[in-house]
Computed example of a mutant assay.
Amino acid sequence: MRAYKNEAKAEKTLSAKGVDFFIAKIYAVRTVHGKTEKKRCLVPAIPGIVFVHASHTELIQFKKTHNFLQFVTTRNSGMTDYLIVPEKQMNDFIKVAGKYEEKVTYFSPDEIQLEKGTRVRIHGGVFDGVEGTLLKIKGKRSRRIVVAIDNVSAVAISEVTPDLIEVLG
């Protein structure tokens, strides 16, 4: 769902209602209240995007009282559909994006070409079981594993040792 400049409000409200959700975050240095003091804090990595795990009926009921969240839609064969992320893809994305202390890089869909890589699975380490695409990213020396959510975002794991990678068919 989209929560334009309302990620904190969405997080607070969804938590209070007991709705399962995920907001990808990264550490960033921010100026607090216009002062010269800078502080390291967690901020949304994909501005305005909140991943919500609920049925369509539950979301409609929620939106009746909380209209700051909007559905993200895609165009498919001339029709408008709600963006639904498959369970495995979302779990892999959360496993990678939820590691705030790990070095991960976020990309928008137009910054990366996912069709060109080799599908791989990681065995062992903090990213055990994650499936992604092994790619060479422009401007980076090494290859990285990218976990993508179609039409939303992609996140690249900075370094994975080759012995942990299994090539998928």
Results as ranks from 00 to 15, higher is better:
Val104Ile: 15
Ile94Leu: 04
Gly132Phe: 09
Lys63Arg: 15
Lys63Ser: 13
Lys138Trp: 00
Ala154Tyr: 06
Asp163Leu: 04
Gln61Asn: 10
Lys25Leu: 07
Phe22Pro: 04
Gln89Ala: 11
Gly34Thr: 11
Gln70Pro: 01
Met1Lys: 02
Gln70Ile: 06
Asn76Ile: 13
Val126Ser: 09
Tyr4Ser: 09
Lys39Trp: 08
Tyr4Ala: 06
Arg144Asp: 02
Lys64Pro: 02
Ile49Gly: 01
Phe22Tyr: 06
Gly117Asp: 03
Ile84Leu: 09
Thr74Gly: 02
Asn76Cys: 05
Lys63Pro: 01
Gly117Leu: 05
Thr73His: 08
Ser77Thr: 11
Glu11Leu: 00
Val32Leu: 15
Tyr27Lys: 14
Asp20Leu: 07
Pro162Trp: 09
His53Met: 11
His53Val: 14
Val85Ala: 08
Ile49Arg: 11
Val160Lys: 10
Glu87Trp: 08
Glu7Cys: 04
Gly169Asn: 12
Ile49Glu: 04
Ile94Met: 14
Phe21Asn: 05
Tyr82Phe: 10
His56Pro: 00
Val52Gln: 12
Val85Tyr: 07
Val96Ile: 13
Gly132Ile: 10
Tyr100Glu: 05
Phe71Lys: 09
Gly169Val: 06
Lys99Arg: 15
Arg141Ala: 01
Ser142Leu: 07
Asp110Asn: 10
Lys17Pro: 00
Tyr100Cys: 04
Ala148Trp: 03
Ile26Glu: 13
His66Glu: 10
Ala16Pro: 01
Asp20Met: 07
Lys38Arg: 09
Arg2Val: 12
Ser15Ile: 03
His123Thr: 09
Glu7Asp: 05
Lys116Ile: 13
Met79Lys: 12
Arg121Gly: 00
Asn151Val: 08
Ala24Lys: 11
Arg143Glu: 13
